[in-house]
């Protein structure tokens, strides 16, 4: 693997891991407020919003840490990619239903609201990082094996 690809891989891995670690820590600080934000999406039955608020932050923190530590990068990236897909589907459903709420992506009590559309664009960017990490990691592994 040439140097440029290696730099790209590690950059994508670190930015992706750092972003989700940061997002997970902020959400995990006040799970009750975060549950309210999940409820704002009006997708889940009442109590399930709290279940998501309990588990999602630790999943984001764990995957983010693994990526930062360069351990279990493939499963971590896979989970973050799937999470990102779910987030994007939820955001699209907001736009389709015309619900204008804060996305609740990072700080639960954000003073500056992030609209569903801008959150969706940001998630597209994260998806590029997911794909970069995934593809470059596979190439790296294959070359290391041969």
């Amino acid at each position: 693997m040439n140097t440029l690809r290696l730099i790209l891989f590690h950059t994508a891995r670190l930015v992706l891991g750092g972003t989700f670690l940061y997002a997970g820590i902020l959400k995990g600080e006040d799970p009750v407020v975060f549950a309210g934000q999940v409820a704002n999406y009006q997708l889940l039955p009442y109590a399930w919003n709290y279940l998501v608020a309990a588990i999602l932050p630790s999943l984001e923190v764990l995957c983010g840490l693994l990526l930062l530590l360069n351990r279990w990068v493939r499963p971590g990236t896979l989970i973050l990619g799937l999470l990102n897909l779910v987030f994007m589907a939820a955001l699209v459903s907001l736009i389709v239903r015309g619900i204008d709420i804060d996305c609740g992506c990072f700080r639960p009590d954000a003073e500056v609201k992030t609209s569903p559309l801008s959150a969706l664009i940001r998630d597209l960017g994260l998806m590029v990082l997911v794909l970069m990490t995934w593809v470059l990691d596979r190439r790296k592994n294959r070359e290391e094996r041969t």
């Binding site: 588990i55 999602l56 932050p57 999943l59 923190v61 764990l62 995957c63 693994l66 499963p75 989970i79």
Partner: peptide, 11 residues
């Protein structure tokens, strides 16, 4: 395994 650990910690 990652999901199980995250669920255990979160719950």
């Amino acid at each position: 395994v990652i999901c199980a650990v995250a669920m255990a910690v979160g719950l």
